[in-house]
Every structure is written in structure tokens, then in C-alpha cells.
Design a binder for these strands. Structure first.
Lengths: 335, 335
DNA sequence: CTGTTAGCGCATTCAA
DNA sequence: TTGAATGCGCTAACAG
């Protein structure tokens, strides 16, 4: 038979409610009682029943992690961070992959919500910037935390200064003598894409280099889009000596294009990515990129969310640091 | 207020129990009643409460997906298949990442089990071959489905004939004139590793090529281990003209080593991987490999598990097909 | 600070 | 074939 809260209460010689208080870290329990209860819990190996708790407590003790079409490496890192935070607080994790661009997916969410319930959401780009989704959640009073490059919107979650990171990265290229630097943009739905672009532009300006729209090509964060964009940039009559792709997958696509064209990296062309995903170390030569503490970002965002769930109004926007990863894919500009 | 089964019963003018019967597809309900209930459910937009159901029904309506240190791409593919099957049956998905090699992780599982409950497990390698874990589950009467290359063990899940796949792949190399073919083994804890090795050996024998232990090097399914093993193979005085790595990540490691050494692929060396993960298309030149329907494997294994949960004894071992992906990384043997 | 009481929404006895 | 009563294990309101 399963051990119930009642058994713990009997063993500790207190009431059920006192045990419940201890388990939920509620105040108004004498230290001695708390000790007694904790000892009994330990001795009986008691584990509260998740379903009974959610039924009685009118909440799910579950957090939904919603995502849409992200890079796999990024997704897994965030997911494991979110999961870690959930486990630590005995929360369940619900996965909500939303069909890309499908606005009907919100009605899908409604179904999930009513069936499983969810005390809060963790959102990553581009959902973190999806106004319809945010409105949906706010309407229902469901708290959410975002992992997003946009800090100033006053929501809770985790942010990283993409603009500054790109400026630092670009400064390296400029210092190596590059004046013609191409940029492959990220997916237009991702807030990160515009921050990375603005970092690119501001870095150019700071270096006194004129902005040339020809050198900026659209991408979608995929390897294939990197290949396409790389080809366009290298087809230019006056081709760039360096390319900054808005993520590693696209930068890897550029490397592939360079190989096909017999260009030597970094001698003929410098290439940088962003994110420091495994692919950046697996390509040859290894990519210079920007490291984000992705796993921590998932974990920290979830912790803020859990705070807000316990105490409405709590939960803040936390900033984390980036780190430049200087590797073999960049060198002094040719000529 | 939430709509309860009681409200549906009132609206349909039947008892709670009848509604429950309809919802759970139980027999002994007149067609007319069923219609009435279904109509009321639709009209009231009724969604059963997950927690109430699990509490009353003494089951969790949740399936645990347990994994340990797998390749990320593989993991995500399986996970999305598992999730798809769960959603289709209104089951919840629990994630159980077990610390690698940590035998204590089983006690962690106990905690998870008692807290959240779980009606069954989906296991992937190497957990699918972990005897301690299997014994633990069987002891508790918890059904599980495995995604595993080992078919003959009479358990339920999904299997793919790794041995035959490797033989086919090797036959391609032999046909291209390769006689000195190296092999980089997978992680020793994975059943797949031995099946792939035995495929390698049997293919050699079939081709009348003597087995040379020097040409077989240990690996761990990681890119880095592929680099190490690749270096060892290419350092041999009589180096191989082709290398079959037990997965794509390691094959990518070999490509990297070849680039560093100035070897041209496939002119100087042919390389094959296994799994057809994205990396096989992202490296240059693209890898010849074996495609597994990974996502489907996760989905099908979960569906078998759900069958077994509903009806103990049901659930079978399903075989799925592979497909050779012949790409640029192989060519006729040099010389 | 602590205990008692009454449900949470459903499935599961059993009886009709 | 259907329905009424009982309880799953816990939290929430209320008393003490």
C-alpha cells in the first residue's frame, strides 16, 4: 500500500494539516514539529501524490514549456534547464511543441490547458515574442517567463544582451582588418535577429565603416538558409572578407559553401556564428562564436516563473552574460 | 467555473457513470445514450480533469520517457515521436533523464514514480539494455517498451535490423573496390554497437576479406571519440581506404581529421556513418549513412506501450525498415 | 500555532 | 444496461 500523508501524521504524532504545512513550506509551524515531520517523511519514504495535490489544490503543479521550430541543440539545452528547475521544486514539465506559424496552435494549447492544466509557461523565441500567445496567457492570468534577448519589456525571465555580444564579436573582425563584412540575418520572427542585426550595424558605425545593404542577406537560422545566403554573398562582384552569420548553423552552411568553392577558411574568408552549439566545434575549422549559458537560461527562467506562481507579482527579468569563443575560423583580412 | 462530469450528466439526462462509460469507451452503453452524452460533451466543451482521473482511477495517464546520455539529435527525434503518441491518447509525458552510469539513478526513478506515477516506460539505448532497470520495472509490474536493435528478446517496442543495414552499407564499399575498411565502434553500453560490429565482420567475411583487428577502434558515439579513433586509423602504417563509423557524429569526426591532414574525401578516403542525423548533411562532403525512421520508432514504441497499458499482454515488437543514404563521402578505392 | 471538517472531480464498487 | 454511494490523497477553509 501507498504511504499517505495520514501515515506520516500518525508516525510524527501530529495532524495531517501540520504535515501538509511542512511539506509546502508554509509558515506557522514550530521548529520542533517541523523536525518531527521531516524525520517521519524521511523514515517512511513518503512521497506526496501529485494528482491528489493538484486535485485538492486546484492547480496542476505543472509548468508548460512551449516552443516552435527551434534549433534542436538550443531546444535540448533549454529543456534540460527547465526540467532541472521543475524537478527541484517537484513540478511536472509539460511539453508543448506548437506547429510553426500555425495560429490554430493556440486553440491546441487551450485543449492542453484544460486537460492537463498548467500553472505557468516557459517561452523561448519566437514564441516569447508572439503577441497573440502572450495576450492569450495574460487573459487567463497564467504567468509566463521568457528566454529572450529583449530585456526592456518588463516581463519575467532571462535575457542576454545580444546587441553587445555582436558588437564585441564584430570588433574582433574589425581589429583583424576586415572592412567588408557580410551578415546573414536570423529568422525574421525571432527578436534575436533584429538585435543581432542592430549590433552589426552599430559595430560598423563605431568602426567608421559605411553600411552596405548588399552585404546583408536574409536567413532563417537553418543550415540550408546559410548555404543559400553564403552563396549570395560570395557571388558578389566585390565579395566580403568576413561573414557574421546570426547563428552557428548558418555559419556552418557558409563553411560548406566555402569548401565547395575551394576557398580556404580563414585565409580567404573569416566566418563567425552565434550560440556556441556543438556544430561550431564540429566543423572545420572550428567556428568563432558567442557562447550563451543556454541551459542556465532555461533553469533560471523557470525558477523565476516558479517564484511568481507561489507569490503573484514575484519573478524578475534576469540578465546573464555571454562569452566570446575565439576559434580558428577568423584571421586577418586578406590583401 | 469548471465543467464537471456531473454537469454533462445533467445536460444529457443520464447518470455520471454513463458519461464515464462513454468517455472511457466502455461497453454496455446503448447507442442512443452514447450519442446523447457525446453531444452534451461537445456542447459544453467538457474536458475531463487529468488529476481527478488519475486520483480516482489509480493510474497516472502518464508515460515516462527515460534516457541516458544519448546523442541529442537522436533524443529529440524519439522524444517528439513519443510525445506525438502521448498527445493522441491524451497521455502525459514525463521526462526522466538518468545520470549517466549512475546506478543510484534507479532510486531517483523510484522517487519520480511515487510522486508522479507512471503507467509505463519508453526506453532507448543504452537504458533499453540495462538489466537492472528492466528488472526494477518488471518487479513493479510496470510495462515498458524499448527502442532497440535487439529484436529477439521478446519484449515490446520497436526494432530495426542493424546487422542487415551494416551489411548493405559495407557491400557498397566492397563494390567500390575497398578491401581495407576501418570500423569505429559505438559506445560499449549500447546494444547497437555490437550489432553494427557484427554486421561489419560478417560483411567482410561475405566479401572474402580477412578480419584485421588493427582496423577496429573503440569509440563512444561522440564527435570527439570519432576524432581520436580517426587519428588512430589514419596513423596506421597501412591505412584503410574506407572507414565505417558506427554513427554520424563519429564519422563527422573522421572528416574533420581528414581535413586537418589534407586528405581529400572521398578521393583519398571513403567515410560512412549511421543514423542519418542532420550532421550527415551538414558536413562536407555529405556523409553516406543509414537512415532510421527515428521519430516513427518513438511513436510506434509508445503506441505499443499504450496498448499494453490498456490491455495487459498486448503490445508487440515491431520491426521498421532502414534506408541507405548514398552521398558524396564514398568513392572507388584509390590505387 | 495547531487540528477538524469538507470537498476537489472522477472511477469504482455494488445494487437495481 | 444503468444508477447511487463511496473513496482516491490531499489542501482549504474554518475552528480551536
Amino acid at each position: 500500500m501507498r504511504i499517505r500523508i495520514e501515515d506520516v501524521a500518525a508516525a510524527a504524532n501530529v495532524s495531517m494539516k501540520t504535515v501538509s504545512r511542512v511539506l509546502n513550506n508554509e509558515p506557522n509551524v514550530r521548529e520542533e514539529m517541523r523536525k518531527r515531520v521531516e524525520e517521519a517523511v524521511q523514515r517512511l519514504q513518503y512521497r506526496p501524490s501529485h494528482s491528489a495535490r493538484s486535485l485538492a489544490g486546484q492547480r496542476s503543479y505543472a509548468v508548460t514549456f512551449a516552443y516552435e521550430n527551434p534549433s534542436l541543440n538550443y531546444l535540448m539545452e533549454i529543456q534540460s534547464g527547465v526540467l532541472e528547475a521543475c524537478r527541484a521544486h517537484h513540478y511536472n514539465l509539460l511539453l508543448a511543441p506548437l506547429a510553426y506559424g500555425d495560429r490554430e496552435s493556440i486553440s491546441e494549447l487551450t485543449g492542453l490547458l484544460e486537460h492537463f492544466g498548467s500553472d505557468g509557461f516557459v517561452l523561448i523565441p519566437p514564441l516569447a515574442d508572439d503577441l497573440a500567445l502572450l495576450a492569450f496567457l495574460e487573459e487567463r492570468g497564467i504567468p509566463f517567463a521568457s528566454v529572450t534577448p529583449r530585456a526592456g519589456n518588463g516581463r519575467m525571465g532571462v535575457t542576454m544582451d545580444n546587441h553587445a555580444a555582436v558588437c564585441d564579436l564584430m570588433a574582433q573582425l574589425v581589429e583583424l582588418g576586415h572592412r567588408r563584412i557580410g551578415h546573414i540575418q536570423g529568422h525574421p520572427d525571432h527578436g534575436a535577429s533584429e538585435w543581432r542585426l542592430s549590433g552589426y550595424r552599430d559595430a560598423l558605425q563605431l568602426a567608421g565603416i559605411a553600411y552596405d545593404p548588399e552585404l546583408v542577406v536574409a536567413g532563417e537560422f537553418t543550415f540550408e538558409s546559410g548555404v543559400r545566403a553564403g552563396n549570395r554573398l560570395l557571388d558578389l562582384s566585390q565579395r566580403p572578407t568576413a561573414i557574421f552569420a546570426a547563428n552557428d548553423d548558418m555559419a556552418a552552411g557558409v563553411l560548406r559553401v566555402a569548401s565547395e568553392r575551394g576557398l580556404s577558411i580563414p585565409r580567404d574568408l573569416s566566418v563567425c556564428g552565434f550560440d556556441d552549439t556543438p556544430i561550431s566545434r564540429h566543423v572545420y575549422p572550428a567556428l568563432t562564436t558567442v557562447r550563451q549559458p543556454t541551459r542556465d537560461m532555461g533553469r533560471l527562467a523557470t525558477l523565476e516563473l516558479l517564484k511568481a506562481i507561489r507569490q503573484p507579482g514575484a519573478g524578475a527579468m534576469i540578465a546573464v552574460d555571454y562569452a566570446l569563443q575565439l576559434r580558428e575560423s577568423i584571421a586577418v583580412a586578406p590583401g
